[in-house]
Amino acid sequence: MKSFEEISELLKNNFSDIQFEFHPEAKFEPYILVPANKIDTVCLFLRDNNDLYFDSLINLSAVDDFNGNKIKDPQGNEIMQGGTMSIYYHLESIKFRHKLLVKVIVDRDNPSVNSVTSIWNCANWHEREAFDLFGINFNNHPDLRRILMPYDWEFGHPLKKDYQNPEFYQGMRVPY
């Protein structure tokens, strides 16, 4: 079972060209910040290395950080421009019993990151859900379409903080 410092050392030695950021001081869970375009190479290494062997992806969550500029759009509603969104990957190794949290930061206006479905099949529906509710594009995903909302929902991505509800959907009134 490896500790956070040993895992960080292994990553630093193997990927000298990638700029990681290590946060062992984070209060409840230490995490590693990885640049968005390198996440699939790092994850492949984490899964196949014989000392680390992270064979299971427990959870993939997207969070809207809501830290841009608040402006008013033509209809008078308050929307946000700029800012970031974060994606958190929880990894675990069943053989060695260690866990790791990896974080990726993307832009809020046009979020896009590489998919890890080819590494862990578990990520398939998690990434579809992140696309459906936040609008994050996953490159190289085998089948990226909406999963929870109706397939013809054209009013945006609901879990963003500045989402507005439509009045009617196919003849049914949506608000109370």
């Binding site: 909302m149 609901p158 049914m172 109370y176």
Partner: peptide, 19 residues
């Protein structure tokens, strides 16, 4: 009438008597 999801449910129909 929509139940506990009446206020913030964006995907819930507020009562089946609407259809």
């Amino acid at each position: 009438c929509g139940g506990p999801y009446w206020e913030h449910g964006y995907h819930v129909l507020k009562g089946v008597d609407r259809v």
